[in-house]
């Protein structure tokens, strides 16, 4: 019994470097979105009026609601790690599932918003949008590419957390070995940070 426990403790593992690896990956994500944010800033600088008019089409209520949903999912994610550290496996699994449910709620809101935009004719390639000033076309182009790419990240994040939930149930993520869950959490929080910037930049232009 004691020898077994001793052996487990000596398994070669470096959690700090594992997290550092995850951070390095997150920087590549930062470059990916950073480029888009740079493009956005130039287009907005060139077409301030059009961006302001086009952003009026956005549903600010749904945008704010989605921000709160994503922030809440970040909370439950952080809490699930705190719970597994305390050895509360069941509570951690519950919180991970809540995080995924928040992700689903976020995506449902996005579907509602996008269907509305599509019904209004504000989608890439539509003749209604093509007749609008170029600044508004650029706004919707940036909106669909940036928010779409972010939505893709939410979907991937949900899938990753889903795997983590399975790992936790099967006992691969435990009180003593939870670095996988931490890495998934880091990814999820980055997705949250990107939305923190997307929200005012697309919904709240005065």
């Amino acid at each position: 019994m004691t020898t077994q426990e001793h052996a487990v403790e000596n398994v070669h593992r470096d959690d700090i470097r594992s997290r550092m690896g995850m951070w390095l990956f997150l920087f590549s994500e930062l470059i990916l979105f950073g480029g888009l944010f740079l493009m956005y800033s130039v287009y907005r600088y060139m077409h301030q009026q059009d961006f302001s008019i086009a952003s009026k089409e956005m549903n600010t209520f749904l945008g704010t609601l989605n921000t709160v949903i994503l922030l809440t999912s970040s909370l439950t994610m952080a809490l699930s790690i705190a719970a597994i550290k305390k050895g509360k496996k069941g509570f951690s699994i519950f919180l991970q599932i809540v995080t995924i449910l928040c992700g689903i709620a976020f995506m449902v809101n996005k579907v509602i918003e996008w269907s509305h935009e599509f019904a209004e004719g504000n989608f890439p390639g539509s003749s209604i949008l093509a007749n609008k000033p170029s600044g508004q076309i650029l706004y919707f182009g940036m909106y669909y590419s940036m928010v779409g790419l972010h939505g893709l990240h939410v979907l991937i994040g949900m899938a990753i957390i889903g795997f983590m939930t399975v790992f936790t149930i099967r006992g691969k993520i435990t009180k003593d070995d939870y670095v996988k869950l931490e890495a998934a959490g880091l990814y999820w929080h980055l997705v949250d940070i990107i939305w923190i910037f997307l929200f005012p930049l697309f919904y709240l232009i005065t």
């Binding site: 970040s74 994610m77 929080h189 949250d192 940070i193 923190i196 929200f199 005012p200 232009i205």
Partner: peptide, 22 residues
């Protein structure tokens, strides 16, 4: 307006980075 919006976003990101991302 944009300055205020970005400042708030930066404060929020700082909180997420330091607390949630440890």
């Amino acid at each position: 307006s944009i300055v205020v919006a970005l400042l708030i976003a930066i404060v929020k990101s700082y909180l997420v980075l330091t607390e949630f991302m440890h």
